[in-house]
Computed example of a mutant assay.
Amino acid sequence: MSKPFTSLNSLLRLMRKRNISIKKGTEGSKVKNILSRENYYSVINGYKDIFLDQTITESSGDDYYISGTTFFQIYEVYCFDRELRHLLLRYLLQAEKNLATKLAYHFSDENKAEFSHLNINNFSKSDLHTTTRLISILSTVTQKNSKFQDSGFYHYLTKHQSLPLWVLVTKLTFGELTYFYKSMLPVLQEKVLGNILDDYHSEFGFEVSLPTSTLINNFNDMLDTLVSYRNICAHGDRLYNHRVRKGKHTRKLLFFHLTTPKGSETSLWGLILTLRLFLPYHDYKCMIQNMVNSLATLSKAIPQQQFNSLLNKMGLTLQWKDSLLSLI
């Protein structure tokens, strides 16, 4: 059954019917002004879960909200999530650039021939489907970006008759970079991961004692986590309760002396821990402090019950502030 168009006044009546408190007059006008800028579906349907009275909702077959819920409380969670996306996208892009730089350096150091990144013999033979797909992607990205005379691609191809990998990686997505890493020869995978672990030791003072070769599968899962959250942030989807799908290998956060609740490695908390491996200490500290400030502001804007539910969906405990600050 199709959904008919609903006017702003009708949306106000619908929300009041569902037990969302919206006073008539100025308050109702403010709500309509917000909904004229922000999509009702994005605000209400996107962030209603922690405010619903599940018992009445299930028995009535229609959404019904916990008594005392206001539109502005739901909107505060919406705004918090948007702010969180903007914050984390900044640092996810930084992690992406870190990975791209290390991939290009170690692959190019080992393979010095022109266009060596298009030679299947320079990659692992363990998954030829993935490797073949990768080379197809690299060829497509090269072709797409070489058309414009003001591009670095055009300059290198016409003047030097080559395209260094460190130029090509600037146009690859995080997902494509992950494909590249998974297709690399094991010895190069270890070099890239070893480089990242050296940086981590230098920045945070923690040294990983396990052999790098034993951590490749876990690192692949970490990359999948970053890609999943990067796409959520870039496309404006709901972030705070997002969970990544489990891969073939259990996501053991081997790089941290931390106690994490079972299953939290697939939540936003898992992302926060994973980013610790890719960022300089100063940037990581700024990220954590901004998160703490945002959560502290939200805790004052919504009821404690709903705030606790939000923490749970983020993979955080009631001691969220201590947990986050312990990372820095």
Rank of each mutant, 00 (worst) to 15 (best):
residue 190 E to M: 05
residue 170 T to F: 11
residue 271 L to G: 13
residue 261 P to W: 04
residue 91 Y to D: 07
residue 47 Y to E: 05
residue 292 V to T: 06
residue 127 D to V: 03
residue 5 F to Q: 06
residue 60 S to M: 15
residue 130 T to L: 12
residue 301 A to W: 11
residue 78 Y to L: 06
residue 95 A to Q: 04
residue 80 F to H: 10
residue 147 K to G: 00
residue 59 S to Y: 12
residue 204 F to G: 02
residue 126 S to P: 00
residue 93 L to G: 06
residue 254 L to H: 13
residue 106 H to S: 10
residue 205 G to A: 14
residue 10 S to W: 09
residue 120 I to H: 03
residue 242 H to P: 09
residue 228 S to R: 11
residue 19 N to H: 12
residue 167 V to T: 06
residue 200 Y to I: 01
residue 277 L to I: 05
residue 163 L to K: 07
residue 188 L to N: 03
residue 111 N to T: 01
residue 187 V to S: 02
residue 122 N to K: 03
residue 302 I to P: 01
residue 272 I to Y: 08
residue 288 I to G: 06
residue 239 L to K: 02
residue 308 N to F: 15
residue 247 G to M: 02
residue 12 L to P: 08
residue 93 L to R: 14
residue 198 D to W: 05
residue 212 T to S: 03
residue 1 M to S: 10
residue 38 E to T: 14
residue 33 N to H: 06
residue 148 F to K: 12
residue 212 T to Y: 01
residue 169 V to T: 14
residue 187 V to L: 00
residue 217 N to A: 01
residue 327 L to P: 06
residue 150 D to F: 14
residue 244 V to H: 12
residue 246 K to M: 13
residue 255 F to P: 07
residue 152 G to W: 04
residue 184 M to P: 00
residue 30 K to I: 07
residue 3 K to I: 15
residue 36 S to P: 10
residue 13 R to V: 09
residue 33 N to M: 05
residue 152 G to C: 08
residue 224 D to K: 09
residue 7 S to A: 14
residue 194 G to E: 09
residue 122 N to D: 04
residue 228 S to Q: 10
residue 285 K to R: 11
residue 222 M to F: 09
residue 220 N to I: 01
residue 177 L to K: 01
residue 106 H to I: 14
residue 117 H to K: 06
residue 34 I to Q: 08
residue 325 L to E: 12
residue 218 N to K: 07
residue 150 D to A: 13
residue 297 T to I: 15
residue 109 D to K: 14
residue 102 K to N: 05
residue 164 P to S: 13
residue 128 L to W: 06
residue 264 S to K: 03
residue 154 Y to L: 06
residue 117 H to P: 05
residue 68 G to A: 11
residue 124 S to V: 00
residue 242 H to M: 13
residue 140 T to L: 08
residue 255 F to K: 03
residue 84 L to W: 02
residue 120 I to P: 01
residue 279 L to W: 01
residue 62 D to A: 13
residue 233 C to W: 00
residue 45 N to I: 07
residue 30 K to E: 11
residue 19 N to M: 06
residue 313 K to T: 02
residue 127 D to L: 04
residue 293 N to T: 08
residue 204 F to P: 02
residue 119 N to K: 15
residue 168 L to D: 05
residue 80 F to Y: 13
residue 220 N to Q: 07
residue 111 N to D: 02
residue 271 L to Y: 09
residue 87 L to P: 11
residue 28 G to N: 05
residue 58 E to M: 15
residue 236 G to V: 11
residue 165 L to K: 10
residue 131 T to R: 08
